[in-house]
Design a protein around this nucleic acid. Structure first.
Lengths: 145, 145
DNA sequence: TCTTATACTTGCAATTTGCAAGTAAAGTCA
DNA sequence: TGACTTTACTTGCAAATTGCAAGTATAAGA
C-alpha cells in the first residue's frame, strides 16, 4: 500500500512523457496542455470556454490565452453562443481535428504496445481496475467533473 | 480500449491535482515539481543532481535552479561528492524530511480514502493491476528509469 | 599532455503563470 | 423599469519557469 503512491507517480509520469513527446504533427507544435485542450474540446459537444477550463482545472485567464494561441495556429474556432452572448463556443477546425486524431493515434499505438505484454485476461483485469480506481477517485471528490 | 486513454487521463489529472493542492506545509510552499524532487531525493540514496533530473525527465538547467530554490527554503542540502568533485550529492534537511513526510501523509490519506470505496478483493486487484501496468510501461520504454 | 566527455551553473530571451481590474451580457428583485 | 449582483471572458502586469547557448571545473581516454 505504501508503494501505491510510487506506482501511480510512475504511471502518471510515463503517461505524461508520452503526451509531451507526441505533440508535433505535420509542422504544428502543440504543448502538453494544448493537447489536453484539443482532446477535451473534441470530447465535449460544443463546450464553452468555462467548461473546458473547469474540466482541466485551469485558471480561466491562462486558459483564455491558450485558446488564443490555438486559434492563431488555426486548430480551434471560437464563436459566440446564440443563447448567451457572454459565452463563447469552442470547436476544432478541420486541421485541429486532424492534429487531435494524429495524437490520439499515437497514444493508442502506445497503449497497444503496452498491453501487448499482457495476456487477454490480464489486459481485461487491468482495464477494469483502472475504471474502478477512477470511479473511486470520483466518489472521493477532489477534482475533475 | 478506446476509453483507456480517457480513464488514464482522468486518473493522471486527479492524482496531479492532489499533489498540486497538498503542497503547503507549515508555512512552507512547495510547487508540484518541487514536491516530486523532494520525493525522489528521499527515495534515492544520496543521489546526484543528474540522477534526479534524469528520473524526472527535467532539463538539467531547470533542475539546477529548482534545487537552488529548495536550498533557499532550507529543505535540501547539496554537498560535493568525495569520489567525483564535479558531482553534487543531494539530501533532505530535517525540515525537508518533515515536509516530505507531511506530503506523504496527505497522499496516503487520500489513497486510503479512495480505497475505502472498495472491498479487500477489489483493492488487491487494483493494486496488482497498477503494478502490472507500470511494469508493462517500463518494458515499452519511452521514459523514466 | 592534449582532447574529449561529464556535471553543473549562469545569461538571456521567450513563454507561462495568476492576480487584479476591466468590459459586456444575463439574471434578480423591488 | 432600474439598480444590484453574478457570470463569462479579456487584458495589464509582474513574477516564476522554461530551454538554449555558453561558461567553469573536474575526470577520463589516447
Amino acid at each position: 500500500m505504501e508503494d501505491v503512491r510510487h506506482v501511480l507517480q510512475l504511471i502518471t509520469r510515463r503517461f505524461g512523457f508520452l503526451n509531451k513527446n507526441c505533440c508535433s504533427v505535420g509542422g504544428v507544435d502543440v504543448s502538453l496542455i494544448q493537447s489536453h485542450i484539443l482532446y477535451e474540446i473534441d470530447r465535449q459537444h460544443h463546450p464553452s470556454m468555462h467548461q473546458i477550463a473547469e474540466t482541466l482545472g485551469m485558471d480561466i485567464t491562462t486558459f483564455s490565452r491558450q485558446v488564443q494561441s490555438l486559434i492563431r495556429k488555426k486548430l480551434v474556432k471560437k464563436s459566440p453562443s446564440d443563447q448567451d452572448r457572454r459565452v463563447y463556443i469552442l470547436e476544432l477546425t478541420t486541421e485541429g481535428k486532424f492534429v487531435a486524431a494524429a495524437i490520439e493515434q499515437q497514444v493508442q499505438d502506445y497503449l497497444t504496445q503496452i498491453f501487448s505484454h499482457m495476456n487477454e485476461f490480464e489486459k481485461e483485469t487491468v482495464i477494469r481496475s483502472l475504471k474502478l480506481l477512477n470511479a473511486s477517485m470520483e466518489k472521493t471528490g477532489v477534482c475533475c467533473s
